[in-house]
Structure formats: structure tokens, C-alpha cells
Simulated scan of single mutants.
Amino acid sequence: MLRRALSYGFRFIVRGRNRLYERGFFLPKSTEVPVISVGNIVAGGTGKTPVTLLLAERLLKDVRVGIVSRGYLSEAEKRKEPLLVSKGAGPLYPPEKCGDEVFLLSSRLPEAIVVAGKDRIKAANMAADAGAEVVILDDGMQHRRIARDIEIVVVNGHDPYGGGYFLPRGSLRDDPKRLREADLIVINGGEEIENNFPQVVVENRPQKVFFSDGKEIDIAEKSCVGVFCGIANPDRFVQAVERMGCKVVETHFVADHRKIGNRELMNFSSRAKERGAELLLCTEKDAVKGLSFSKSALPIGWVKSGLVIKKNQKGWEELVAKVKKLIGES
């Protein structure tokens, strides 16, 4: 009963806030360059950061891209002023200073200008001052204070509406009606949803596996592995590992953005070894957190993965063309 009451209360607050923006009582503030928001309507785990990565990789072929992210559970999140993490030559700060996802983005996209901070307007303008021609907001949908030119919404194809209820009864954090505002809906896994929405379907696929020193691992079919991670949707990572042909014999999950402790890692690796595991695997996001690999009873590898578009490549390219047109007009 309590969760139901809290869920109704949260829904009332969210819808009320949205109406104030829709009716012009609150006005979003514009920035110096076009802004693309990549967000979702549920709490975590849909793949916003991988979509940001995919879009930025595509745009960097033609324009200078800025990426703005909050820097969850990092020093940057607590600062009054945003932190310029990358000037277009890779990360200038470690993950604990800027956040695991921010560090990952600036490492995978060294040409991008990356800024971390809770004030998205200041962060976007900082990216523009550093040379960005367009700014991508990672997890920007609920930050309505900043005006955006393009809205991309990422949904879990297997549960697009968060169980149909707002937090905490379900996982909705925004009104599903806001999907109508989207320039594009990205379905991560599963199939297309209602046909009246512009959408593409993507899938997260493992690409390579590396040791901590950067040496690539050649994983044989039917290898027994243990899997650990601190991400919002760990089951998706387990499924990806299984699609590589591995047999997952033991798992250990911690909260999103959290680093697994040394003792935890030691105990988990011992359990996995007893179950027949030859190797432990984690995500790239976990690997950048500075794990103590020497504390493990088994070697540890991290999986580099990326999104591929399964359906409506044309729709994706149309969105890219729309962004380029915006930049040309700004």
C-alpha cells in the first residue's frame, strides 16, 4: 500500500512539473550550440550511455562533438562549477574525479570534448567554449531547464514502460506520453513498439575481451566464466557473455556506478573458481573503476561492447542528417 501511495504521489509531481513547462510557466534556457538529449522514461538500465557513444562516434566524422554528463558518484557531481574532463585529447582526470561513465566516454572518444557536472546549462556552454559545435546530453530527458533541439529516448524493448507504474511501485520516472516529443526512440533489445513513433532497434554486442594490460583475450567456445558488474541492468551483460559462447557458472552484482571491493572480489573469485570458472569477466565500465586485479583468485578480463543497429538504419541516418542541418543553421 505504501509503495502504491508513493507511486501515485511521484506521478502527480512529475505530471505537474511537465504541465508547467508545457504551458510556459517554466521556460528552458538555450545554449550557445545545438543540444541533443539522450534520455529515458524509466530509472536506469536502458543503455543511454551506449547510445550517446554510438551517436557521438557517427557525428565525430564530420563535426566537433561535446558530451555532457552528470558524473554520478564522483567529485565532479559535487562541484558548483562543471569539470572539463576532455578537451578533445582523452581524459584529464581519473574516474573517481569525473565518474565512471564520463571517463569511459572520454577514453573511447578521445576527439570529443567531455564535461561533467550537475548544472547542464553551464556544462553545455563550457563544451561550446572549448570548441564543440553540438552537445549531447547523456541522461538529459528530465533536465527540462536546458532547451534541446533534438530529443532521443532510449527504451528497453522487453519492458518499455517500466512495468506500467511510476517509482517506487514500478520503474517509470517520467510520463510515457512524453514519447510523443521524441525525434527518435531507440529500442535497446527486443522489437519495435507502437508504430506511430519514429524508432530504430539496436542490440548491444560484445566486440573484444581484454586483460587489464590491454592484451586481447581469445576466449574459446564453452569457456566457464564468472561474471561480476556494477551496472543498472546486469542480466543484459550476462546474456551478452552467454552469446559469446561462454558458460556463466557464478555471478556477483553490485549497485550501478559502485566499485566492487577487494574482499568482495577475492571471495567471489574463490567461489567462481570452485564452480569451475577459468576466468572472470566484467564490463568496460567496471574495468575503468580501478579494480585491484591482483586480489582475484582468477584472471580478469573486461568486455568491450557496442551497439549495432538492427532495424531502420535509414531512420538513424535521417537523424544524423537533421543534426548536421541544425549545426549548419546555428
Rank of each mutant, 00 (worst) to 15 (best):
V238I: 15
D139N: 04
R58P: 00
Y72R: 03
L167G: 09
K322S: 09
A124C: 14
L54S: 05
E250W: 05
V225L: 12
M126G: 01
A89H: 07
S69Y: 08
F210C: 12
K247T: 08
A240T: 07
K324T: 09
D62L: 01
I36W: 00
K48N: 10
R120A: 06
K78H: 14
E133V: 07
G276T: 03
M244C: 01
K122H: 06
E192F: 13
D129M: 10
D235F: 05
F12N: 04
K289D: 15
A255G: 14
G261T: 10
S86P: 12
L73H: 15
F210W: 11
K118E: 14
R148Q: 14
L172R: 10
V155T: 08
P198W: 04
V33K: 02
E81K: 06
N40K: 09
A89Y: 06
L280A: 06
A112V: 00
V115F: 14
E133Q: 12
P95H: 06
I217D: 05
G162F: 02
G290I: 02
I67F: 13
V154G: 07
I187K: 05
S37D: 07
I67M: 05
L307A: 09
G328I: 08
A147K: 03
W302S: 01
K247N: 12
G261I: 06
G226C: 00
R70S: 12
I185P: 02
S106I: 12
D119Q: 09
L265D: 12
K325E: 11
F12M: 04
P110E: 00
Y8A: 14
G164Q: 06
R64I: 09
E216D: 11
L53C: 04
H257V: 04
I13P: 03
R258W: 01
G117S: 02
N125V: 04
Q142H: 12
K311A: 15
P206C: 12
W302T: 04
R3Q: 13
C224P: 03
E32L: 14
R79H: 07
N204A: 05
E151A: 13
L2A: 13
R169G: 07
S223C: 07
R243M: 14
Q207M: 13
E133H: 07
T31M: 08
F211Q: 04
H143F: 12
P28G: 12
Y72N: 02
N125L: 01
K289N: 13
V308S: 07
Q313S: 13
E77M: 14
E57Q: 14
L27M: 03
E317R: 10
G315L: 10
L109I: 00
D129C: 06
E32A: 14
D100H: 06
G140N: 03
K259E: 15
A147W: 01
L280I: 04
V35H: 00
E194V: 08
E242W: 09
V249R: 11
H252M: 13
L279C: 09
R3E: 13
I327N: 03
L2H: 12
L291D: 10
R148A: 10
V14H: 09
P91I: 05
D119A: 15
T283E: 09
H158M: 09
E278S: 15
K215M: 15
K247I: 11
A128D: 00
E57H: 08
C246N: 03
P91M: 11
V135M: 13
V33Y: 00
G99L: 02
E191S: 15
R145T: 11
V227Q: 07
E216Y: 04
N204K: 15
E181H: 07
E101N: 04
S30I: 07
E274C: 10
H257R: 05
